[in-house]
């Protein structure tokens, strides 16, 4: 039975599909967070070098991964929306941005709090920290551009262009910052020697990142449904949905 994928590309059918998927992802997120945190705090041993401070890794690394992945996924959806003129893909891109920005801020915040006990300063101009900061600026640029344009169609397309230009620039920015960092102070602060990953630490971190995935998908789907309602408010199916809701 050939699945007709395009059926779900129309906002109306996607609205109900997302409605069914959101509870699944939410429950998965809650369970995985609980398991991940349990492993992180109660099973993983104390690190011989960093003592207990390394436990921040269980939120810091997943957040950093999420911030990068979500930007790439946002750029992909924006690109599809621009190329195929599918409104739903652009709505997805718009829905992803705030969650991505939140994870970027989280990665920076937990990174700073982890850096303080380890390197003695809140902020170190290390290549990865700096590129993470620039990634936050890219997110904010995307969101403010979309907020500044009233007509949703133009906002989607303009956002798509800046997202694609941004995603092309991410590797360039990363390598130029890396080159700049090693040239200036010579990697006195080498972050690369992360704590020797005991098995439980690794599993704890992986579970936490999957939990972050589930959470991100759930929140993004909810926001997409809200955007669908916002943009399709004049259509019949929203009117009748509205009638039911009362």
């Amino acid at each position: 039975m050939a699945i007709n994928w395009f059926k779900y590309s129309s906002p109306a059918s996607f609205y109900f599909l997302a409605g069914k998927m959101i509870p699944l992802f939410t429950i998965a997120a809650i369970i995985l967070f609980a398991v991940g945190l349990y492993i992180g705090f109660f099973v993983a041993p104390t690190d011989f070098q960093q003592g207990e401070a390394y436990r921040i890794i269980f939120i810091h690394v997943p957040a950093a991964w999420m911030s990068m992945f979500l930007y790439v996924i946002m750029a992909i959806w924006a690109g599809i929306g621009l190329a195929f003129n599918t409104r739903l893909s652009s709505m997805m891109a718009t829905a992803i941005a705030p969650t991505g920005a939140m994870f970027t801020f989280l990665a920076l915040w937990t990174g700073a709090l982890w850096g303080k006990p380890m390197w003695g300063t809140w902020w170190v101009w290390d290549a990865r920290l700096t590129s993470e900061l620039i990634l936050l600026f890219l997110y904010i640029g995307f969101m403010s551009l979309q907020a500044a344009i009233d007509d949703p169609r133009r906002a989607d397309k303009a956002g798509a262009v800046i997202a694609l230009v941004g995603v092309v620039n991410i590797p360039i920015i990363y390598f130029s910052v890396k080159w700049w960092n090693t040239l200036h102070q010579g990697a006195t602060v080498s972050v690369t020697q992360s704590p020797k990953m005991a098995a439980t630490m690794l599993t704890g971190m992986l579970i936490m990142s999957i939990a972050c995935w589930m959470y991100a998908i759930a929140v993004i789907l909810i926001r997409t449904r809200t955007i669908i309602l916002e943009r399709e408010r004049h259509t019949a199916w929203v009117g009748e949905l509205r009638g039911m809701a009362q």
Binding site: M102, L106, I222
Partner: peptide, 29 residues
């Protein structure tokens, strides 16, 4: 192990961010 402020500082802010985002989304809806 003496790092309580840093560990709990980061986790509290993480929980706050996630809760804040959920609140924002539902408020918007």
């Amino acid at each position: 192990g003496g790092y309580g402020f840093y560990v709990w500082g980061s986790y509290l802010v993480s929980v706050a961010c996630i809760a804040g985002e959920i609140a924002l989304v539902f408020n918007r809806k």
